[in-house]
Design a protein around this nucleic acid. Structure first.
Lengths: 232, 232
DNA sequence: ATTCGTGATACTGTATGCAGTATGTAAGCG
DNA sequence: CGCTTACATACTGCATACAGTATCACGAAT
């Protein structure tokens, strides 16, 4: 059985195009990306062992690139390596979740201030566009698309801060929590509240009011914790 | 030629003891740890390509565990993977350095506040003990030992915050800058200033004054940037 | 002389094979 | 009937072999 994307071969995975330039993507990186998706979607649940031979067969790759992909995820903290027992998907306790959100909050507050100070008008407009697109998916009740744009907006704001380290760190921590936030988004009726918080974020950003944006982001993440903690 | 530690075999690397319990450490992890050291010490300089066969020979391991170790470091952001050209040690620009210190500052400020609120008296005493030991190495002018304890103190304060995510993030970012701070420590005559800043940090911690500790840490990192930026 | 092309070389990416260890199962013993 | 132990199985850890690609050197042509 093939897992993940349906399109099987080179056109999608091994070779892609980027501005006319052919970029060759090693299998390991493709596998790593696929694994990240499988983990956030819950196809590989938290705590599950990763069986190299069966997963390799499902993905259609040999053990070597799969192992190397797993090592990357281990470096990012998405999986844990247990000696002689392979890798298991990292399981977040409620405290882990809380701790991560505390850090994320601190980082987004920092990012918000920096973004208001440094972002270009075009950059702000792009985030606003993402927001409008997200609203569209919200009214259409398209959960997956909404979720992805939601994450993208947070990443985009962080990107506006023009701080690569901040962006990278934020991305990794966000990735660890993606699964819980993904399922958390599922049945939640607090959806409307989250959207309203996003509205305020965008307004603050457009006003280039760093403190206000930081406050909005902080509040949003506090509320995120209450929205999500029930799932643990 | 053997690189790194002198003691060659099992006693040191493959098998160690931990509270009477034998812990088996995979080669890859040992190699990863060794690589981190080689990078911070500058034995493998920033920007250098990692030749798998020669480095593997030097470390006395085959390419497989070496490659997997490199993948872990890639996940941590210490090396970059270039398709078909292997891995190169990540090179930090002055901006990267600045960005990282901004993030580190924000995180240590957060950690300082949390530590003052949550740390046990014993934990505080342990950090104080580290500080006293560091002072000892300072008066003895033992640079390497001083450097290691310096880093350890920062990590220990972060550890007192009892936030695993914060600790992990801090560790990774600190690891990326270790080399520059290592050489930066070399000839610096601003050494005394750094020590004084540490004194204030410890006093604030012992007083459990979160704002004061955050301020001390922030100032220390600001000064660190001025101490280090000349090296870029 | 310089530039472009061509071939050799060396290194990375991937697959596979082998050895060692953990785990589950079944049989023997209390 | 429960517990221990021994064995079989399956999976990980590591090494090696092979294929594909980038790089460098050398030579030819302009």
């Amino acid at each position: 059985m093939e897992l993940g994307s349906s399109r099987s071969d080179l056109a999608e995975r091994g070779i892609a195009e980027n501005g006319g330039r052919i970029v060759r993507r090693p299998l390991q990186e493709e596998v790593a990306a696929r694994l990240r998706d499988l983990i956030t979607q819950g196809t590989i649940p938290a705590g599950a062992r990763i069986n190299e031979v069966v997963l390799g067969a499902q993905l259609g790759v040999s053990r070597t690139p799969l192992r190397e992909a797993v090592r990357m995820l281990a470096g990012e903290g998405l999986v844990e390596l247990v000696p002689a027992r392979g890798a298991v998907v990292r399981k977040l306790s409620a405290k882990d979740m809380f701790d991560s959100l505390v850090v994320l909050k601190s980082m987004e507050e920092l990012a918000g201030r920096l973004a208001c100070a440094k972002a270009s008008a075009q950059g702000i407009e792009e985030v606003s566009a993402l927001h409008r697109a997200m609203l569209e998916h919200y009214v259409q009740r398209e959960r997956l698309a909404y979720f992805k744009l939601n994450q993208a907006i947070h990443s985009a704001i962080v990107a506006l801060s023009d701080n690569a380290t901040l962006a990278w760190t934020h991305e990794v921590i966000q990735a660890r929590m993606k699964h819980i936030r993904f399922i958390g988004n599922a049945g939640s009726e607090k959806w409307a509240g989250a959207v309203e918080e996003h509205e305020e974020m965008i307004r603050a950003l457009q006003a280039r009011d760093g403190n206000r944006l930081a406050a909005a982001l902080g509040l949003h993440l506090d509320r995120t914790f209450t929205r999500v903690k029930a799932l643990l």
